[in-house]
Amino acid sequence: MEKPDLLTETHIFGDDTHVVTVRAEHCEALAARHIAHVAVIDAAAPYTIVRTHLSGAFLQVCLGGEGQTLLDGSWRSHTAGVASFAPAHVLHAFHCLPGQRWQLCWVRFMPSSPRSLAGAMAPGFTGFDGRPLERAVLGLSAEMQDGADPGTCAIWVDIIERYVSRMVDPWQREPRLNGMWSAVLADIGHSWSLEELARLANISPEHLRRLCWKNFGRSPGKQLTTMRIAQAAHQLATTPKKIEAIARDVGYVNPFTFSNTFKRLTGFRPSEYRSKPRP
């Protein structure tokens, strides 16, 4: 199947795709948690989503079948038991494969959510059983159709948030990484070496590598790069600052290296990314 056009904001559902959605405008408990909407979907081609400017962070879990998701600069097969997390202001796309159904559950956060803040989390995939999250979303949906008791809705949303935390807060389970990456975010433009990062975490460089691969599925250097580009994308989308200044802010002395890295991870040159209209 031909890949979607990544230069155009696209939302194609098709007649054979079925969605159960609960939105914040109808559910005060979601709004209180800064969650824009939650959904369970059973999709089939031509189901295609392209978000050229993701305004809020997005968690999506595959429950069954197979589709393809573009994240962190590359397309990947997205199968059952795998979750993807896209921070705000990144290029994000996914689509069904011909002849295959694809079952998904997702949580879309508002721009005001702490999970949508620049650098809150880098994009990534991880193993995650989405079935409990699916049941919580369906439970909330059923309650919304059956009188929408505020207390019961709040309980369902609390359960949703707890399951989300298990996936998108991996470094919260490892205090040494939490403190280290917090320090990095506070000075993202510094030329961090592996040895400096390891000293911040009070562990050996090799142990840091192992922890990063375990928690993020990438090396410390790649994690730092994705965090820098996420911060740069946030500045491009929300400030008039010059591109060269943004590059320096996030640790790139050479603007060409910054542009090439940004293109590799987002699909756009920085100038293209900034010039695209927001949906």
Rank of each mutant, 00 (worst) to 15 (best):
T8E: 03
E28M: 06
V22R: 10
G14Q: 01
R33F: 02
H18E: 08
A24N: 08
L6T: 02
E25M: 11
E9C: 02
A39G: 11
F13I: 13
V22D: 13
D15N: 09
A39H: 11
H11P: 03
A31E: 10
L7M: 05
A36D: 15
D15C: 04
H26T: 15
I12A: 03
I41N: 13
P4F: 03
H26C: 11
A29K: 09
A31T: 07
A36S: 14
E25C: 05
T8H: 00
H11N: 12
H34Y: 12
C27Q: 04
R33S: 02
I12W: 04
F13P: 05
F13N: 08
V20W: 11
V38R: 02
E28N: 10
P4M: 01
H34P: 09
H18T: 14
E28A: 14
T21E: 15
I41M: 14
I35C: 06
E9H: 08
C27K: 04
C27V: 04
A29H: 07
V40H: 06
D16Q: 14
T21Q: 14
A24I: 12
T10F: 00
A31F: 04
E9Y: 01
A29D: 04
E9S: 05
T21D: 08
T8D: 03
G14H: 07
V20Y: 09
E25K: 10
E28C: 06
C27H: 05
C27A: 00
E28H: 11
T17Y: 02
I35H: 00
T8I: 05
H18V: 13
H26A: 15
H34W: 10
H34F: 13
L7Y: 11
E9F: 02
L6Y: 02
A24H: 08
L6C: 01
R23K: 04
A29Y: 10
T21P: 01
H37T: 07
T17I: 07
E25F: 12
D16S: 15
A24T: 04
T17H: 08
H11A: 10
R33K: 03
T8Q: 02
